[in-house]
């Protein structure tokens, strides 16, 4: 098992959160499995059908369900997980707003929600409540009832507009 490439296995150079990591994966490996195998366990496994959004990551800034994305297809793209947006000491405005508004309960859906919100805000920095609901309709949360999530995203959108950046 070296770096030779065939149509079923190859060594990928994946750019994750600004860092290039090499991993040898089969053609049928999803981005979700590849990322979790590499230790990016903030990317959550949910329905694996594109219904729940727990596995969402940004690929070149656009939110995709990593369970429906083959790892080979994102080589050369920039992949961002929720920890790539910010961390405990330097939180992203979305992360701060989720904490402030109590938009997190069990936390399982949170990485996907923040990724989906980020992707939506980069397309539409001033969303209406209906825009927020539609932007997050592919993320299931069974704890919060969503109200605090929508409040947090609206608050973060305002903070990001004031800071003059949507990234």
């Amino acid at each position: 098992m070296t770096s030779e490439t065939d149509m079923t296995h190859k060594t990928l150079a994946l750019e994750v959160n600004g860092r290039v990591v090499e991993t040898r994966v089969p053609a049928h490996r999803t981005l979700l499995d590849a990322l979790r195998d590499l230790g990016y366990v903030e990317v959550k496994r949910g329905c694996e059908k594109g219904d729940c959004g727990a596995c969402a990551v940004l690929v070149d800034g656009v939110a995709l369900d990593s369970c429906l994305t083959l790892a080979w297809t994102v080589e050369g793209c920039s992949v961002t997980t929720v920890t790539g947006l910010g961390n405990r000491t330097e939180m992203h405005p979305l992360q701060e707003a989720f904490v402030e508004h109590g938009a997190i309960q069990c936390g399982y859906c949170t990485p996907g929600l923040i990724i989906a919100a980020h992707s939506m805000l980069s397309e539409n920095p001033s969303p209406s409540e209906a825009d927020i609901r539609n932007g997050l309709s592919g993320n299931l949360c069974r704890c919060t009832g969503y109200t605090k999530v929508f409040d947090a995203v609206a608050k973060a959108a305002g903070a990001m507009r004031e800071a003059g950046e949507t990234s």
């Binding site: 594109g50 309709s137 592919g138």
Partner: peptide
């Protein structure tokens, strides 16, 4: 969904795109 051009020549398709799946599914 994000196309301004279609808003003037196929707006029913834009409405369908809006009601389609969730965001990540629409993106893919």
């Amino acid at each position: 969904l994000n196309s301004d051009e279609l808003a003037g020549s196929g707006v029913s398709l834009v409405r369908a795109a809006e009601a389609f799946g969730g965001q990540m599914v629409r993106n893919a």
